[in-house]
């Protein structure tokens, strides 16, 4: 039995493969810019990790507007992977991120296996990059636009190529837009992934009945926010049982209670996403609440409750 003083702060550190984080609260890619956007409202050094907006080799302008629409307890987005591209990211964004002292996870995206591999190569030796997160929800241009994450074999090919080149642990971010997410998780684990993060957005739609047009210029978009939490939680619970690598929970996490549900379901860490938009301090509140819960339940560490779901 562990002997500890109730007044002690619980140990919040987590291991995601070889990646050690001071706490389990990260920012979901695409909801936190490149970090600096939130620096006026939040102490970035308190975060477990910052996961930056997905980076491609070349800059991408993104989709025409309208790009976002609010839905019941959530939102749809079709930003179109707008990002500054690898060169500008390294030159303009990394220096700031490096001096924050927070582990930086670079989310990478491409439209071919080669592009993913090249991104991993170029990021391999970059100081301050603690891990890669592979976004496999992008369309595979050579396969007629089918998302890499929709096909176990295509997803595995991307993961193998990235793992061969990567100098950091590789997290693979799973799409929920599949028939069997546990099957996808195992395929990606077998291909060498160090950890999994899930879920990405669910594809959805909204229509303006007065103009009879889709509310998004792209017609469909990714649904996020509290509306998707029950689905995300179910998928994390399924995947945590199906694989032996660490799982990071994402999907509608806005409070410590939300995060704790994911942790009990088997997530070693969590990402706060859409909540950053409407509560820029959400990550800090989630972290404080997890700490309070552990003290209240006399748990010495976060590790002690991961996957601690009864029944």
């Amino acid at each position: 039995m562990t002997i500890y003083n109730r007044a002690d702060s619980p140990d919040l550190s987590v291991h995601i493969g070889a990646l050690r984080l001071a706490n389990p609260v990260m920012t979901a890619s695409g909801t936190f810019g490149y970090g600096a956007e939130f620096a006026g409202l939040l102490d970035l050094s308190s975060l477990g990790a910052i996961i930056v907006k997905g980076i491609s080799l070349a800059p991408r302008a993104g989709n025409p507007p309208p790009r976002i629409v609010e839905t019941a307890c959530g939102m749809l987005n079709a930003i179109g992977l707008e990002n500054v591209g690898l060169e500008r990211f390294l030159k303009e964004k990394m220096p700031y991120l490096r001096q924050c002292g927070t582990p930086v996870v670079v989310n990478i995206l491409g439209d071919s296996v080669d592009e993913y591999a090249l991104l991993a190569t170029r990021l391999a030796g970059v100081e301050g990059v603690a891990a890669l997160e592979v976004n496999i929800s992008c369309p595979n241009v050579r396969m007629g636009g089918v998302a890499f994450g929709a096909e176990p074999q295509m997803a595995a090919a991307v993961v193998r190529a990235v793992k061969e080149q990567a100098g950091q642990p590789v997290i693979v971010k799973l799409s929920p837009n599949v028939t069997d997410i546990a099957l996808m998780a195992r395929a990606v684990e077998d291909a060498g992934a160090d950890a999994l993060s899930l879920i990405n957005t669910l594809i959805g739609m909204a229509i303006d009945i007065h103009t009879r047009r889709p509310k998004l210029a792209n017609r469909t978009g990714g649904l996020s926010g509290p509306a998707i939490k029950p689905i995300a939680l179910r998928m994390v619970w399924q995947v945590a049982q199906a694989v032996s690598i660490p799982v990071i929970g994402i999907g509608g996490i806005a409070t410590a209670e939300d995060a704790l549900e994911f942790i009990l379901a088997g997530a070693s860490a969590v990402q706060v996403g859409t909540a950053n938009f409407y509560n820029p301090r959400a990550t800090q509140e989630v972290l404080d609440g997890i700490s309070a819960y552990l003290r209240q339940h006399h748990e010495p560490s976060l590790q002690a409750i991961i996957g601690g779901l009864h029944g």
């Binding site: 907006k53 507007p65 309208p66 987005n77 707008e82 409407y278």
Partner: peptide, 25 residues
């Protein structure tokens, strides 16, 4: 005035076209 989710430059939802450029917002 546009719709925006965050107002902070993170959601990138409030894009409008830049004159004379098809690849920038």
């Amino acid at each position: 005035e546009t719709h925006m989710a965050c107002g902070l430059g993170a959601c990138l939802g409030c894009a409008i076209p830049v004159p004379g450029r098809s690849d920038a917002y």
